[in-house]
Write a protein that binds this DNA or RNA. Structure first.
Lengths: 338, 338
DNA sequence: GTGAAAGCGCTAACAT
DNA sequence: ATGTTAGCGCTTTCAC
């Protein structure tokens, strides 16, 4: 391993001179020729700063954590892309951790991740199923934190999407097609984003003077399996809806599959529109009509706010509205048959 | 932040005593009563070891890297699960990095990740599209390395799956159904796993005395889009195949979609069998027949070998064969119509 | 059985 | 313009 003093020895200067030159410190008052010698020596030796030493000295790691419920979905990967791009452009690395694994892996993983000075801050994507107690570990910690998907006043910042707007667009699309019996396949009751999405759905229905019978609203969750169960419940009704809005594209896949199993033809017997776009939506059969939310920007803004928080202490609660949600009409929606 | 000396002060002992007790060092010759006082003090103060200090002192971070081409797919997530479980049970954390982002993000990201002492070792999943020069950065580095999916004699270990066996099973399933005109939708020519999969396909065909016309073999890649392009080429042939084996489930989704676009009914006009299982396969229409490979075990073994490498220096090249590949017959395969 | 002290590689205040 | 030096928090010999 090449250290600063190796470089210093080769360049015939002191370690502090090397440190200053290589980090391009603000007070780098070093002669041009010396600087050149130092840079040459560093290059020739293949010098790389030791991360642990720097972190120990400065109490900063230049690493932020992105904690998510699961990594197995297209939604996560867009968020990651945005967060990573932003982090990278500020010289930060992103450490991804799943809450899934943490809970399975014993209580130790979370404290280990956030309590040992590995991270300068955390981006926490609160999923449909995150338990309040797990959330509190983060909220009560002292690490700079930006919560994604739900708002918690206190010492954490937050970034959310305009979920109500997205759901409203999906619902209005169905209403525009002539549907009057529209069901909701929603997130779990404890889910913040689920509540906002339901709100958007209800808002659009109310504006169109359409009733929302109690049993047209399901809140089983965002997973494919849960979407399937919701569809089964809805289809079993005496007067089933002719269209459904699904609060998450993954659940929509499950609903689609269940519809097929029940012999319902989509979109003839049932139209399906879903929140969030993903490549799986395009490849489903029939391809799913979705509302594309600005997930990359969501991740980017969350990271930007976290870095701001780390570097200046600023705390913001933000709704990402740009670019706006976009309705992508594919083949899973059509006018009602009757 | 609570440090060792804070704990020492509270327990009325020296820092070294605290260090020994809390790490449960082999030579922990400490009185039972003292040990108790130390543990109490640490708990009361909420002591957490400082990661950077420990890393600086010991030149070990207890973090391994998992470097993958993309995180957006079900295959990756199974590998991660296996690797993370194994790592966790040995007290290691897993840092996930995408080569995608690294290449976009400038040359600096790879050296930064592997050259600054952040990681004790790297698990490198060589994807379909990894460029040889990127691979070499890792191969030439001094960090313990286990390569997943391709074998490189030298100072890196390797773990591969029995790709030939899996492809053979998919192919034999099609042959058993009565197909004689079977095409291959394969990985890129430079892909190691692609070569092994093609080998399995050809082996099964040869054993059944079935010809493999040159243009029945495509090598466009594992992505959905590339699978679609491959299908288009195959379907455009004067005498198109009645069945295809797709070397990757993601490409199979693309092929399925393209088939629909061309008006081909699956499995009536064309049977499709694919390598790797995923939830998307089950939710496709028709649900895809696949060969389930032991991906969790793949990740687990790779991590195990890496940790072994780190701790004892042992270097192994391994083929993960247990559990064996499993054919999952769904509805995308049937006897040929003619 | 317990403590003192050196030092991992780096940064930054201070000295020259 | 450049060098000297004191730690950051921890592990680990070595001494008692």
């Amino acid at each position: 391993m090449v250290t600063l003093s190796d470089v210093a020895a080769r360049a015939g200067v002191s370690v502090s001179a090397v440190s200053r030159v290589l980090r391009d410190a603000p007070s780098t008052r070093v002669g041009a020729e010396t600087r050149q010698r130092i840079q040459d020596a560093a290059r020739e030796l293949g010098y790389r700063p030791n991360f642990a030493a720097r972190a120990l000295k400065s109490a900063r790691t230049n690493v932020i954590g992105l904690v998510v419920p699961v990594v197995t979905n297209a939604i996560f990967s867009e968020i990651l892309r945005g967060a990573e791009e932003e982090a990278q452009s500020h010289g930060y690395l992103v450490f991804v951790a799943r809450t899934e694994g943490m809970i399975d892996g014993g209580e130790e993983t979370i404290p280990r991740l956030i309590g040992e000075g590995r991270l300068d801050g955390v981006l926490l994507q609160v999923g449909d199923a995150m338990r309040p107690e797990d959330l509190h570990i983060f909220l009560n910690g002292s690490l700079p934190l930006v919560v994604m998907n739900s708002v918690h006043t206190g010492h954490a910042g937050s970034v959310i999407l305009d979920d109500a707007r997205g759901m409203r667009m999906a619902t209005e699309h169905l209403i525009g097609l002539g549907h009057t019996h529209i069901g909701l396949v929603g997130g779990l009751p404890r889910s913040d984003s689920g509540r906002r999405r339901e709100e958007g759905f209800r808002g659009a229905m109310a504006d169109a003077d359409l009733p929302v019978p109690e049993h047209y609203v399901t809140r089983l969750g965002y997973e494919p399996r849960q979407g399937g169960a919701a569809l089964r419940a809805l289809a079993g009704l005496a007067e089933p809806p002719t269209a459904i809005v699904v609060a998450n594209v993954n659940a929509a896949h499950g609903a689609l599959m269940e519809a097929r199993r029940l012999g319902l033809s989509v979109p003839h017997d049932l139209s399906i529109a879903a929140m969030h776009d993903a490549w799986t939506a395009e490849n489903a059969w029939p391809p799913l009509t979705t509302v594309r939310m600005p997930l990359v920007e969501f991740g980017r803004q969350a990271a930007r706010d976290l870095l701001e928080r780390i570097e200046t202490g600023a705390l913001v609660d933000r709704v990402v509205t740009d670019p706006p949600p976009e309705l992508i009409v594919r083949e899973s929606t059509a006018p009602p048959a009757r």
